[in-house]
Design a protein around this nucleic acid. Structure first.
Length: 475
RNA sequence: GUGGCCGUAGCUCAGUAGGUUAGAGCGCCAGGUUGUGGCCCUGGAGGUCGGGGGUUCGAGUCCCCUCGGUCACCCCA
C-alpha cells in the first residue's frame, strides 16, 4: 500500500511554504505592534473544553471533532478552533492585568469532506482580546483583520458585520423568529424544514431560493436589540466608518458557533474561487469565559484561514504588497572540482556570514554541477579547483550579471579594507583597481569581503518567482 | 453523511470497435558541443496502467467492489 497523507491533509512544500512563512511572520509582527502577545496552546485539549465552548448544538461538536482516548482513558479532542483553548488558558492563568490580548497561529482539525478551500487539517491565524467591553476594542480587532489583508494586497474584499445581541435580547429575537418560521415551515427547503427549532438563525443563512423566498418577511434581529446592545453596535459602525473601513450590515450574518454575542463579522473575497470564500471572521463572546468557569469577562476575536489567504494571494496578480521566496534562491553556488575539504570550509564560511549557499554532493562532473548551479538560480558561482585550492584561492564567477567587474587578485588583495570602506558597486569606477569581467581568482580568505563589498550589493535583492502559483518581487 | 466528475512514467497527457515486448512532451541522468552552466545534438533510466474480483482465448480498454483525488451539498476558515 502506498503511504499518503490522510484524506483532507496535505504537505505544504516549497515554494508555497516560503509564502506561508512570510505571511505568518507578517501577521505576528502586526499583532505584536498592537500589543497582542503570542500564545501557544496545546494542539489537543480535554474534549470538554470544546463541548462547552463551541456548543453542543453545533456541527463542529456533533460530528466534526477528532476525538480520542489516550492510554489513561481520558477523552481528548484535536482542536477544531482556537478560541476555546484561549479561553481555557485565560481562566487557568488568571492574568492580573486586563485586557489580555494574544495572537496565535497553528493547525486546527475538523472531520469534514474536503473540498476547495476546506481541509481536515487546516491552519488559522487569529487574535483574541479579553477583558474589554468598550466598542473601541471591536473596532481595533476588526481593523487589524482588515488592514492585514489589505497590506498583503488582497482585493475584492467585503466586510460584513452584524449584532447578535446579548443573552437576553437574543432570546426574545429567537422566539419571534421561531414563531415566524413555524408559519413558513412548509415553504422551507428540505434541509431546514425540520430543523428550525435547533437554531432558527441558520435558516436565514440558507442560500436556497426556497428559503430566501420564505424568509423574506422574517423579523429583523436589529429591531430586537436591547438599548445597550444597540448602542454598542451603533458605536462600532460609527467608529469603523470614521476609520474609513467599508462594511455592510448583513442582518443575516450568522456564525456557526454558539458562543457569539453582539458583534460578529466576516470578510470574504471575490478572488477566491469555489464555494468557500470566507477569508476570516470572528466576533464577541462576552459570556463564554464565565460559562467555562472564569470571571465574567467580555471578549472578542477573529481567525483567518491560512490556506484560503495564501490561495487568494496566488490568484490575485494585483497584489500591492507582494511576496518573495528568495529565501529559497541561493546567492552563491559552490562548485567543487577538488576534494571536498576546501569546499566544505568555504560553504560553512559563507552560510555563517548570512549568505544563502548551495552546492552539489558526490563527485559530479563540472557540467552537472554548473547545471545545478544554473537551475538553482544562484547569482554567483565560486569554483573550488584543485590547483587554486593549493594556492588558497578560488574562482569567483557571476552567473547572471556578467557585466559586473571583478577586482583582480593582486589589486584586490592589496587594499581589501579600502574596497570595503568605499562600498564599491559594480557600476562605480574603482580608482586604483584593475578590473575584469567574466571571472576572477581571489584569495579564499577574501571571498566574504569581496562578496559583501562588491558582488552582493550589485545584485538584485530578490527575484521574480518563476512559478505561476505564487507571485511577486519583494519590496 | 449525500451526490457529480476523474485515477496510464516525477509532471501534463496519448492510447484506435478489447489483440503482439504500454507511448509522447517536459523533467531527470550520462555523453557531445560550449564562454567549465543556460541553447542544440545523441543516448539512457523510469510505469504492479490506484487496488481487488469478474467477463473473455485475450483487458489500460467492458462489469462489480474498494481506495484515492476533485468539485458541490451540509457547515465553516
Amino acid at each position: 500500500m502506498k503511504l499518503k497523507s490522510p484524506v483532507g491533509t496535505r504537505d505544504i512544500v516549497a515554494p508555497e511554504s516560503w509564502i506561508w512563512a512570510k505571511v505568518i511572520a507578517e501577521f505576528s509582527r502586526n499583532c505584536g505592534n498592537a500589543g497582542y502577545d503570542w500564545l501557544l496552546t496545546p494542539i489537543f485539549e480535554d474534549t470538554q473544553v470544546f463541548q462547552r465552548a463551541v456548543g453542543g448544538s453545533t456541527d463542529i461538536v456533533q460530528k466534526e471533532m477528532y476525538d480520542f482516548q489516550d492510554k489513561s482513558g481520558r477523552n481528548f479532542s484535536l482542536r477544531p478552533e482556537e478560541t476555546a483553548s484561549v479561553v481555557r488558558s485565560f481562566i487557568e492563568h488568571r492574568p492580573a492585568v486586563l485586557p489580555w490580548k494574544v495572537h496565535y497561529w497553528g493547525p486546527m482539525f475538523r472531520y469534514e469532506r474536503p473540498q476547495a478551500g476546506r481541509y481536515r487539517q487546516f491552519y488559522q491565524l487569529g487574535i483574541e482580546a479579553l477583558g474589554v467591553e468598550d466598542p473601541s476594542i471591536d473596532v481595533e480587532v476588526i481593523s487589524i483583520l482588515w488592514d492585514f489583508l489589505v497590506e498583503l494586497g488582497i482585493t475584492s474584499m467585503t466586510l460584513r458585520i452584524n449584532s447578535l445581541g446579548d443573552a437576553l435580547c437574543r432570546e426574545n429575537y429567537l422566539e419571534s423568529l421561531h414563531n415566524f418560521l413555524l408559519t413558513k415551515q412548509t415553504s422551507l427547503c428540505d434541509a431546514h424544514r425540520d430543523r428550525i427549532s435547533e437554531n432558527p438563525q441558520r435558516v436565514l443563512d440558507c442560500k436556497t431560493q426556497q428559503c430566501i423566498e420564505a424568509t423574506r418577511g422574517a423579523p429583523e434581529h436589529y429591531l430586537f436589540l436591547c438599548d445597550p446592545c444597540r448602542d454598542h453596535f451603533e458605536a462600532v459602525k460609527e467608529q469603523l466608518g470614521a476609520m474609513g473601513i467599508p462594511f455592510v450590515h448583513d442582518p443575516r450574518l450568522v456564525r456557526g458557533l454558539d458562543y457569539y454575542t453582539r458583534t460578529t463579522f466576516e470578510i470574504s473575497s471575490g478572488i477566491l474561487e469555489g464555494a468557500q470564500n470566507a477569508l476570516g471572521g470572528g466576533g464577541r463572546y462576552d459570556g463564554l469565559v464565565e460559562e467555562m468557569g472564569g470571571p465574567p469577562t467580555p471578549a472578542i476575536g477573529f481567525s483567518i484561514g491560512l490556506e484560503r489567504l495564501v490561495s487568494a494571494l496566488g490568484f490575485d496578480s494585483a497584489s500591492k504588497v507582494t511576496l518573495t521566496y528568495s529565501e529559497k534562491i541561493p546567492q552563491i553556488f559552490v562548485v567543487d572540482l577538488a576534494q571536498r575539504g576546501p569546499a566544505n570550509l568555504l560553504f560553512r564560511e559563507l552560510r555563517r556570514n548570512n549568505m544563502r549557499v548551495m552546492c552539489e554532493y558526490g563527485r559530479r562532473s563540472a557540467k552537472a554541477q554548473f547545471r545545478s548551479a544554473d537551475r538553482s538560480q544562484a547569482s554567483i558561482a565560486i569554483i573550488v579547483g584543485q590547483e587554486e585550492a593549493d594556492r588558497q584561492c578560488v574562482v569567483v564567477r557571476p552567473l547572471k550579471h556578467k557585466e559586473i567587474l571583478l577586482p583582480l587578485i593582486e589589486s584586490y588583495g592589496k587594499s581589501n579594507e579600502d574596497a570595503n570602506m568605499q562600498g564599491l558597486k559594480a557600476s562605480d569606477q574603482i580608482p586604483g583597481f584593475q578590473l575584469q569581467s567574466g571571472q576572477a581568482e581571489i584569495g579564499i580568505d577574501k571571498v566574504v569581503g569581496l562578496l559583501n563589498s562588491v558582488l552582493l550589493p550589485a545584485l538584485p535583492t530578490s527575484r521574480v518567482a518563476n512559478s505561476t502559483s505564487v507571485i511577486g518581487i519583494g519590496t
